[in-house]
Design a protein around this nucleic acid. Structure first.
Length: 960
RNA sequence: GCGGAGGUCGCCCAGCAUGGUCAAAGGCGUAAGACUGAGGCUCUUAUCCCGCAGGGGUUCGUGGGUUCAAAUCCCACCCUCCGCACCA
């Protein structure tokens, strides 16, 4: 077993023995309740889960070290269809799928056989998952764990839905879905062989009439064009039927009749015939009462909607093309018994004014694109283009009745409602492309009746949800507009289905609460589940009254307790525990859950809880990529959490993930990077371990003060970043930047055996502990500090420990080194001897005066010169000051405001002493002799007269 | 189409809300040197271009604009990723 693995197991065991992460209410301590959406258990946990959850864990550990009573619970989502589907695929012997389970998930042959039981499968992955979560070191309170099929949890969901229904947020109605006739169930994207992303389109049917009253329901997405109709198109070769539809006599394509039967229509087919039978007849437009002919149109697809299309040649390229084709072929019309003069007499009717087009946009676009006939593929393109233009910028002309002057955008919806009210319009659903179920059956649109909805359309509910968002902290805040738009955009959500695992709807027989709808406020259940389990509370005791009392404080405790097998004390204890932990302090998830789960969570909290129990903060992060690609089992780039921990170790896995990205950016898992990090941690162990093990001398030179000051800055940076859930920034600072500081100190000092660096390492370990808890725990135990680092006190930034003089002095050294290097690079030489000349004291006087001036406003040269001229000490140098001042001003433009303030505060520093102190270090660095003179030293060796170049904070340099 | 997020020096990415401190942090990669029996470990240095003295030039998707000054502000355009419903 590797050393890393031993360390991981050792500390995992000790944490568990110490019950370190079990959190109970404590009125004397401030609390944090942090959560991660429970993962769905149809497969193993992967590094994507780990990324999001690592952010939660880092935050939880950070807050715990800051002294908060932190509760991080974890559970497992079993609700839904896929678990069942997966199990069925195993039962069916689906080889491709079984191969994935064996090779990617690592399921043994023996276990696999048992997967025919979906419960077994879910339990298997749950067990595997729990182990992985423990192995990665998440600081979870396991006493609160559950799965969503547990009866006690289901009582909670029943309570939730009972309350929602009572508040009027649950409604019943009809709903169109893509449906597999064989499976007798809705066919979601994941269940489809082809046709991903296709949703039911609603067509408006305009009820045109034949003379005998028979209705020709022509389908359209543009009912406003009814004012521009010139004729009807019927495919002469397609089969149509005459049918009784909800008591009316309709003519529709044969396929349409079948479809309508699934859409809540009573359809009795009376006879079937070929479309040509209708050609030549006339019909009435119910809006205008004008008569028009029916003409043959081969482009009409009987599979689309009703198979009946009306013609608007002024605005529809297909209609114009088909008409033009007919007008060119009178002999064809005669075959159908149509008088060619009728067709020749048809003139397009212009009804829409569009930017960039004349009266007849369809004709213009056809001519512009050179489209030859209705079979030209460009006809489609032109249709899309024109429809888009007309929808966005079209205005209805004077011949459009009461809609005249309105834009298409505003008229369309109103017109549909009006026409339906008048009884001249109807609607039906159809699919824009074919959708095929995984079972290879072509899908249709079915209207489900008696469907239960969560009415997210309710304006009052939306308003409450907006209020929740308004008081939320969102990490990063750039996700806020997204939440608000989602709240506005969500509409009725079908919250129950008939298949899969889940909680039965308390009032609806045969309905099961759907998976996204049973996971909205369950964080509240965590607060009491430890007590439920510890006291073996029976599900039947968790009545609505009991839960009302616990979560809402409703009712009288004594009488509520009396109704069930729960003592008053226990009831109160649960109520108190809920009140202690709620509200939720952080919920963090990947951004894909913003439009559904997270927004639902907001809606449901708004509906069920008072404002003081609304969530406080939501974190959103990117989706994990693997080597630049989305992670999929089918792509062969699926990385299980278990596998990652085994290969790289828990700490490297956590940190590799967290270093990938923050905010809403997508992190990229690169095996090379993680592997490198693994080695980095090995050397981290050595580096920090050596310092801890070495003897300590108590020294206090500027270098120690520098180190202490730097560490204070790092402490501040990490703390601020973590408070904003900027885990990447925090970890980068904690790991790399701090490490660089320590390295610099050791190089400058030439040893690592001081108390200062020993103390620094302890703080360093604390800064890293939220990210790499195992290694930090191990190293912490070597420091002799005692206790767990997981609960050690987080370092607090202390301004008084920051020594700006020490910081400036060290900056002087690095600046001098940069300058020296720059010269060496330009010279392309190896130096024998380097001589530094520090600025004379009168230059400091001038310099500091200029600094002072630039801090309060603009430094004016003549003004400064006047001041200097009156100063007796400076007078002898006045000739040299004249050229110096502009140089100083220029140099200061490159220096930050903070540093200038420090410079002014510090005053003169003795550069000679500082450089002399560093000369051994500089000698090693440049492999050359180092000599330091003061400019004012007349004895100094200065063959090239460089000394006069010296400026404060920028000594002159001469290199031999 | 609608909505959201982005395009930075070989790669991953900071910076952009408050314009100057930005040739632009950090990590990776690459190169040289040190250490070593050896090293794919580790440490140091370098890493846009030019420069025999600490300097100069050209960069932050593209094209304009504002300004003494723009990676940062404004406008237009191009490109990439994500979500779009009964499904986790």
């Amino acid at each position: 077993m590797s050393q890393t693995k031993q360390i991981e197991q050792k500390w995992q065991k000790r944490w568990e023995e110490a019950k370190l992460f079990e959190a109970d209410p404590n009125p004397n301590r401030q609390k944090k309740l942090v959560t991660f959406p429970f993962p769905y258990m149809n497969g193993p946990l992967h590094v994507g889960h780990a990324f999001t959850a690592s952010r939660v864990d880092a935050y939880a550990r950070f807050k715990r070290m800051q002294g908060f009573n932190v509760l991080w619970p974890w559970s497992w989502h079993w609700t839904g269809q896929p678990l069942l589907g997966a199990s069925q695929r195993v039962a069916r012997g689906d080889e491709a799928y079984i191969k994935v389970l064996r090779e990617v998930d690592g399921v043994s042959a023996e276990e696999l056989q048992k997967f025919v039981d979906p419960f077994y499968m879910a339990q298997y992955y749950t067990n595997e998952g729990r182990l992985a979560v423990k192995n990665i070191g998440f600081s979870v309170d396991w006493r609160r764990e559950f799965t969503t099929v547990m009866p006690t949890f289901q009582k909670f969901i029943e309570w939730q839905y009972k309350n929602l229904k009572e508040k009027g947020y649950v409604t019943q109605g009809t709903h169109p879905v893509v449906w597999c006739p064989k499976d007798q169930s809705p066919t979601g994207d994941h269940d489809r062989q082809s046709g991903e992303g296709i949703t039911p389109d609603e067509y408006t049917l305009i009820k045109y009439c034949l003379d005998d009253g028979t209705i020709l329901p022509a389908a359209t997405f543009r009912p406003e064009t009814v004012y521009g109709i010139t004729n009807m198109w019927i495919n002469p070769e397609a089969t149509y039927v005459e049918a009784d539809v909800d008591g009316e006599n309709w003519i529709i394509s044969q396929q349409a009749a079948e479809k309508l039967k699934e859409q809540e229509r009573k359809v009795i087919v009376k006879r079937a015939f070929l479309g040509r039978e209708l050609v030549g007849k006339f019909f009435t437009n119910p809006i205008t009462n004008l008569k028009f002919p029916i003409l043959p149109g081969w482009f009409v697809n009987p599979k689309t909607a009703t198979g009946i299309v009306y013609s608007v040649p002024a605005h529809a390229p297909y209609d114009y093309l088909a008409l033009r084709d007919l007008q060119k072929k009178p002999e064809m019309l005669i075959q159908f018994g149509v008088d060619p003069s009728t067709v020749l007499a048809i003139k397009p009717i212009s009804i829409i004014k569009v930017e960039g087009f004349g009266a007849y946009p369809a004709i213009e676009i056809v001519e512009k694109m050179g489209i030859t006939d209705q079979n030209d593929p460009k006809a489609d393109e032109s249709t899309n283009e024109l429809y888009k233009k007309e929808f966005h910028s079209g205005i209805l002309k004077a011949n459009c009745g009461i809609y005249t002057g309105k834009s298409i955008r505003e008229a369309k919806d109103k017109l549909i409602v009006d026409f339906k009210e008048l009884g001249v319009a109807d609607s039906m659903y159809d699919l824009s492309e074919s959708v095929v179920c995984r079972c290879m059956t072509p899908c249709i649109v079915k209207i489900l009746s008696d469907q239960w909805f969560l009415n997210y359309s309710d304006p009052k509910w939306k308003e409450l949800a907006h209020q929740v968002i308004a008081q939320l902290t969102i990490y990063p805040d750039s996700a806020r507009p997204w939440f608000n738009t989602v709240i506005d955009w969500l509409r009725e959500w079908a919250c129950a289905r008939t298949t899969g695992f889940g909680t039965p709807l308390p009032w609806g027989k045969g309905w099961i609460i759907e998976t996204l709808s049973d996971s909205t406020i369950y964080m509240a259940f965590y607060t009491i589940n430890a007590q439920i389990k510890a006291n073996s509370i029976k599900p039947e005791s968790l009545t609505p009254d009991v839960l009302d009392y616990i979560f809402l404080g409703k009712g009288d405790r004594v009488s509520v307790a009396k109704t069930v097998d729960i003592s008053t004390d226990l009831l109160d204890s649960m109520r108190n525990e809920f009140l202690y932990w709620y509200p939720l302090d952080l919920r963090n998830s990947a951004k894909e859950l913003v439009p559904n789960h997270l927004s639902f969570c907001i809606f449901h909290h708004a509906a069920l809880f008072p404002p003081q129990h609304w969530p406080k903060a939501i974190g959103v992060n990117g989706m994990l990529m693997v080597e630049g690609q989305g992670m999929h089992k089918s792509k062969g780039n699926f990385i299980t959490l278990k596998g990652a921990i085994e290969k790289y170790g828990a700490d490297a896995t956590r940190c590799g993930l967290l270093l990938g990205a923050e905010g809403m950016d997508d992190p990229d898992w690169r095996a090379d990077n993680i592997n490198d990090l693994k080695f980095k941690f090995d050397s981290f162990m050595g580096f920090a371990g050596n310092i801890i093990a070495s003897t300590k001398t108590d020294e206090d030179t500027p270098l120690e003060r520098w180190l202490t000051s730097r560490l204070q800055q790092r402490i501040n940076d990490v703390t601020v970043a973590l408070d904003e859930l900027k885990t990447r920034t925090a970890l980068q600072t904690a790991l790399f930047e701090t490490w660089n500081d320590l390295r610099w100190y050791i190089q400058r000092k030439g040893s690592a055996e001081t108390k200062a660096i020993g103390d620094a390492v302890k703080d360093w370990l604390k800064l890293l502990a939220p990210f790499a808890p195992f290694l930090c725990e191990e190293l912490w135990s070597q420091t002799g500090e005692g206790g767990f680092i997981s609960t050690a006190k987080w370092p607090v930034y202390n301004d008084s420990k920051v020594d700006v003089v020490a910081l400036e002095q060290e900056t002087l050294i690095t600046d001098v080194m940069v300058d020296t290097n720059n010269i060496l690079k330009a010279m392309k030489i190896m130096p024998n001897r380097i001589i530094y000349y520090t600025a004379a004291s009168w230059k400091w006087q001038v310099y500091l005066k200029v600094v002072e001036k630039t801090l309060v406003g603009e430094a004016k040269i003549n003004e400064l010169m006047r001041t200097f001229a009156t100063d007796i000490t400076l007078k002898p140098h006045i000739k040299d000051i004249a050229p110096l001042v502009p140089r100083i001003i220029k140099a200061l433009t490159k220096i930050s405001g903070d540093r200038k303030i420090n410079m002014a505060k510090i005053g003169i520093i003795d550069e000679k002493i500082i450089l002399d102190d560093a000369s051994t270090f500089l000698k090693d660095r440049f492999n050359a002799g180092i000599t330091v003179y003061s400019e004012s030293d007349i004895q100094c060796f200065d063959p090239k007269h460089r000394a006069t170049m010296a400026m404060p904070y920028q000594p002159a340099i001469y290199i031999e």
